[in-house]
């Protein structure tokens, strides 16, 4: 297995019901382990749809997604749940924190899916993760008491708390000002340098330029590789 094929998309097609043409149209893409990939392109070109398919949030109509050589599209629901929980991490333009949970509880959320209580080790991991994104001391703050940048950091900490291998970020700086946005990109760079594979959708060419590789999408397909 070479480093180019941690995640491989093969002939992906996705057409939303009622849409004239597919949002993603016979798309191929290879993502290497430890890579920081940016996906750019105009609005409506299918970037979000592609990200959701890659991260197993939605099913493609046709094509394969190979993770470490295994087709995950055909995998049963339980396997996909586990992939979403343990291997893939997703961060959105809006942070989508639960408003009634504290920052720490939000980060712990991935451990709260069952009746078994979160272990002390999990809580320690969540605390360490909060520190890692620069929010030590904010454990008990509610989302409503934090700035947009801080909320996005909590969301990143939550996405990564179970030791994900791949982080998918859909315009993570979209709702932030440039200073806070730059800080988030900086954080992603650092996490990437620690071994995390990052796939980021962004409008911002300046931010895209900081990644290892940029792919541009137009009309549901990849335009140029640079």
């Amino acid at each position: 297995m070479n480093e180019k094929n941690l995640l491989q998309a093969r002939g992906i097609v996705k057409r939303y019901p009622g849409a004239e043409r597919p949002a993603v149209d016979h798309l191929d893409l290879d993502i290497g382990a430890g890579e920081f990939l940016s996906i750019a392109g105009p609005s409506g070109s299918g970037k979000t749809t592609l990200l959701h398919i890659l991260s197993s949030l939605i099913q493609a109509d046709a094509g394969q997604i190979l993770f470490q050589g295994q087709d995950i599209c055909a995998a049963p629901e339980a396997v996909r749940n586990r992939l979403r929980g343990l291997v893939f991490a997703v961060v959105f333009q809006q942070h989508h924190l639960l408003p009634y949970l504290s920052a720490l509880e939000n980060v712990l959320l991935p451990f709260l899916g069952g009746i078994k209580p979160a272990r002390a080790a999990d809580i320690a991991t969540a605390q360490a993760m909060l520190s890692r994104v620069g929010l030590a001391g904010k454990e008990n703050s509610r989302p409503g008491q934090m700035s947009g940048g801080e909320q996005q950091r909590v969301a990143i900490a939550r996405a990564l708390v179970r030791g994900a291998q791949v982080l998918f970020a859909d315009e993570p700086t979209g709702s932030l000002d440039s200073v806070n946005g730059a800080a988030i990109i900086q954080l992603l760079r650092e996490l990437n340098s620690e071994g995390l594979t990052v796939v980021m959708v962004t409008h911002n060419d300046e931010f895209a330029a900081q990644s290892d590789r940029i792919v541009r999408m137009a009309d549901g397909a990849i335009q140029t590789l640079s």
Binding site: L57, E77, A78, N81, R84, H96, L98, L109, G114, A159
Partner: peptide, 19 residues
Amino acid sequence: RREIGIMRAIGFSRSSVFA
């Protein structure tokens, strides 16, 4: 709905959401 979406996106099963 969004909250449920998050739970599902970070690995909650359908039955966890139901619960």
